[in-house]
Design a protein around this nucleic acid. Structure first.
Lengths: 234, 234
DNA sequence: CAGTGGTCTAGACCACATG
DNA sequence: ATGTGGTCTAGACCACTGT
C-alpha cells in the first residue's frame, strides 16, 4: 500500500510491527510468530525479518530470547539518547563565541572523597584543574576536574592555559568506560562568583567519570550557567 | 588471538576497528578501506563487514556515505543512553515501597505558556493533574501534568485517585514522539511543601512532551526530591 | 559516470534456553 | 531433545552521490 517499491524491506516490517503494537493488536507480553512464519507472511527471507526484529529489540520495544521467542515488552522502557556535545560546539551552536580561561591547575594528593569515588589508594597524586568556558563574555560552564597522574603521566607536562583539559584528554588518552550523572546543585560562594549568579542559585550539574580498561582516568564536575536545559528528542 | 572460534565475526571486526581508532592508527577523519577490501583483510564476506561498520556508525564512531566511503568521526560525539524508568520501578529499585497520591485534577483552558509550548489553539481545554510519588513516607517526586483533552477525550472519565496519570496514559494512548529536557529549578513555596525541602532549594527537574503523530498529547514536569541523581554508564 | 554503501536472497550451521 | 534466534556465506541488484 504505502510502499513505493514492490519488495518488502526490513523498514516496512518494522513499521508494520510497530503499528500492531501501538494499535493493541499485539499487547504487551504477546509472543510474536517466529521469524520463519513472519518471513512467509511478509514474503521475504528470514534474514530480513531478523534485522527488523533485532533493531526493534535494540530500540526497546521487543525482547528476544532463543527458544523462548520474541515478546512485546510490557514496560515500554524507552530509552533516550543524549548526544553529549563538546562545550565549544554547544556554545557555537547558539551563535556565541567560545572562549576558554584557566582558573587553576595544581598537583596534589587526592582528597578522601575523590579517592573513595575512583577507588584510588589514599594520597595518590592527582592534577586538579579548574577552568571556565564562556559564550562571548557570558559564563557558560565552570569545570572542576581531577586527573589521575598514574593513569596519564604526561599530564604533568601539559599546559592548560590555552587548551581545556577535556580537549587535551580527548587528544591524549582513549577511554573505555564512562559514568555520567546529572543533578541539581546549589551555587556556593565560589561557584556563584564564577557563573555570575546569586549565591544559593540552583545549578544544573553533570559529573563524568572516565576509565581506561578499569583504571580511573579523570573525574569532572561541570556546572552550567543559569537557565541551562539539556534536551533530547526520541 | 583472543577469538574463541576460528570464524571472523562482526564483533571481532568491531573490536579491531575500535582498537585501531583508539590507538590512533586510524585518526579522526581517516578514510577507511572500503567494505570489499576489509572483507578480504578479515577473510569474510562484505555482509559481515557491513554489519560491523553499520553498528559502529550507529554508535557514533564512524560516518558512512555512499560513494564517499567510511570515515572516523572527528568529534567523538559519543552518546549516552538513558533508560527512563517508571517512577514505581525506580522507587522499588532502591528498596522503598512505592506510594501514590493524587493532589488535584481539573479541566481548564490551557494557560498561554502551555498553549504556546504545545502549539494549541488559545483556550483549548486541558486536564491539569498534580500528584505525588512517595518512597515509603518520603517524597520522591512531584508531578505536574497537563493532558490535551482533544487528543485524549477519555481522560474526562478517568479516575486518577488510584492510578497515576502516567500509568493511565501508557495504558490508554500510544505516542510517537517525545521531547525530554533536564534542568535545575528552584523550589517555590508550593513545591517546597510537597517535596518537604526548604524553599529555594535546587530541584532536579525533568520535562516531557509527548506527541501522537504530530498531535500534542501531554506535557509533564517532574520534580525530584533533594539529592536525586540521574546516572548512566556507557 | 562510476564507486561506495544499502539491502535482499537462499541457504546453512550453530548457540542457547526451555520443556 | 528440540525450537528459536544469532550469525555467516556467496552472490546480486540498487540508490545515492562525488567527480
Amino acid at each position: 500500500m504505502t510502499q513505493t517499491s514492490d519488495t518488502t524491506s526490513y523498514k516496512d516490517i518494522k513499521q508494520t510491527v510497530l503499528r500492531r503494537i501501538r494499535s493493541g493488536q499485539w499487547q504487551p507480553d504477546t509472543l510474536l510468530p517466529n521469524e520463519q512464519e513472519l518471513a512467509v507472511e511478509f514474503s521475504c527471507t528470514r534474514t530480513t525479518v531478523n534485522r527488523a526484529l533485532r533493531e526493534l529489540a535494540n530500540e526497546g520495544f521487543l525482547e528476544r530470547r532463543r527458544k523462548a521467542g520474541t515478546r512485546v515488552l510490557s514496560a515500554p522502557q524507552r530509552q533516550a539518547r543524549f548526544t553529549i556535545p563538546l562545550v565549544r560546539d554547544e556554545v557555537e551552536a547558539t551563535g556565541g563565541t567560545y572562549r576558554y580561561a584557566l582558573v587553576s591547575a595544581e598537583t596534589q594528593p587526592a582528597p578522601d572523597w575523590l579517592a573513595a569515588r575512583l577507588a584510588l589508594t589514599p594520597g595518590q597524586s592527582v592534577m586538579h584543574v579548574r577552568c571556565m568556558h564562556y559564550s562571548g563574555n557570558t559564563p557558560f560552564q565552570f569545570e572542576d576536574r581531577w586527573i589521575v597522574i598514574d593513569s596519564v603521566p604526561q599530564v604533568e607536562q601539559a599546559d592548560f592555559s590555552g587548551i581545556g583539559p577535556n580537549d587535551w584528554l580527548v587528544q591524549t588518552v582513549p577511554f573505555t568506560n564512562v559514568e555520567l550523572t546529572f543533578l541539581a546543585s546549589r551555587a556556593d560562594t565560589t561557584l556563584a562568583g564564577f557563573l555570575d549568579v546569586p549565591e544559593g542559585e540552583p545549578v544544573f550539574t553533570a559529573e563524568r567519570i572516565t576509565w581506561l580498561q578499569g583504571q580511573p582516568v579523570t573525574f569532572a564536575k561541570m556546572y552550567f550557567a543559569a537557565g541551562y536545559r539539556m534536551t533530547t528528542e526520541f
